[in-house]
Design a protein around this nucleic acid. Sequence first.
RNA 1: GGGUAGAUGCCCGAGUGGCUAAAGGGGGCAGACUGUAAAUCUGCUAGCGAAAGCUUACGUUGGUUCGAAUCCAUCUCUACCCA
Length: 443
Amino acid sequence: MGLTIVSHAAGIYSQNLKIAKNPCGEENRGNGEKLSKIPHSLVAGGFSGGFGLAGVPVAAISVRLPVSFTVLATDPSSSARRGELALPHGTVATPMFMPVGTQGSVKTLHPAELEELGAQIILGNTYHLWLRPGHELIRGMGGLHDFTTWQKPMLTDSGGFQVWSLAKLRKITEEGVRFQNHLDGSKMLLTPELSMDIQAALGADIAMLFDECPPYPCDEAYAAKSLGLTSRWARRCKDWIVTHQPRSGTGRQRHFGIVQGSVFADLREQSARELVELDFDGYAIGGVSVGEPEHEMFRAIDNAVPFLPYDKPRYAMGLGTPPQILEMIGRGVDLFDCVMPTRVARHGVAFTLDGPLHIKNLSHAQDPRPVCESAHPHVARFSRAYLRHLFRAGEILALRLLSFHNLHFFLRLVADAREAISAGSFPTFKDDFIQRYTQPPLP
RNA sequence: GGGUAGAUGCCCGAGUGGCUAAAGGGGGCAGACUGUAAAUCUGCUAGCGAAAGCUUACGUUGGUUCGAAUCCAUCUCUACCCA
């Protein structure tokens, strides 16, 4: 059976190469060469996974319409589910945390280290890579995968978030967003179509739609207006995709819509329904972690998830802390990304089972213990005292070690969550983790 | 032995009569960080006090003045130059 399926998969893939652009959105690449680059795990992983919801073998469906997301197990007492997302460059186990590599690099870490950590998919950013080095250059270098040498799945954010985070330098219009870019101040226009085109050039496995991320707080009128824009932009993205990337083949680029609507339940529902109507490969919940209180963030998830298809991956953008990730897994979210583990690492904070630990603090000056009992051997070999010393001395190794450690912590967290879902023990796992993580330290 | 310059808070260093418990760095101690303009940013850093405030502080001692880190004298020390 396995052999037959593999040949199906290869057939679909090669056919796809002939009739359409390949997953990187490139034309006329030698298909023999590209075929040899398909990771074996994709061919096996994407088509080996058990049965779909209705008990139909996945492989049987995939000949007609490739299934890229399969729910493998669910938690009976929550919305948590374990799944498998098949993408052109490999299969991603969900729930999964995606390290952020904005400029084509997960800061301080080598791709081989990311693999060692068990990272299965990383992010890149349209806005930043567009400005520098430029998407045409990356296209010419064979796409973001070849350019960076990361050969596992990638997701590119659309630049929508930069519309929010660079708010002082931009103006939003129906057409798109006029930026004064932060590098040299020159004026640029990013539109939904251009974002899609850039992302096609970058060639990530998943491209995000171009959205507007409203600030917090914002009144309902603004949120509704913003949502209207996001929805009209989604339609334009869809039109662009249909025109430029005909839907076929497992190797094609996937596209995720982004649910907006701020803190307003009816807007979240409306946003989700409008996006689902357009039919994307997955759905993200955006406009969270923009300064709102945590309960609003959870509400935003709860207000969107019920209107998203069960058989498509759900992605909470830009989140979150370890407890937040577990809470959201319990709410049915499959994918996460967050700069927190890598950013705070560079600022001297290590995640531990007992909560965040400021390694620079005086209290660790002579502490011989490793940073965390669950640390990776590469980090566990060092004492807290030594890590503190490295930070105080300004050694680059300090930034690398904590970045490595924090990503290990996050990736292990979601790996443990997946195990727990399969084992039927997710609620206990979640509660135990959060209780220990949040309890105040002993005096 | 003579001359010149200088001695400021943990360190460097600004300040030449009241707005100075003393700029600015550094160091130290904390904190923030959630689709990365971030190896960044913020706060504190003489003592006591929750605070108002009080008490000590600009090498020493003494003086001028309503008031001195700032002016004068003295001593001590440092650097450089001359013998």
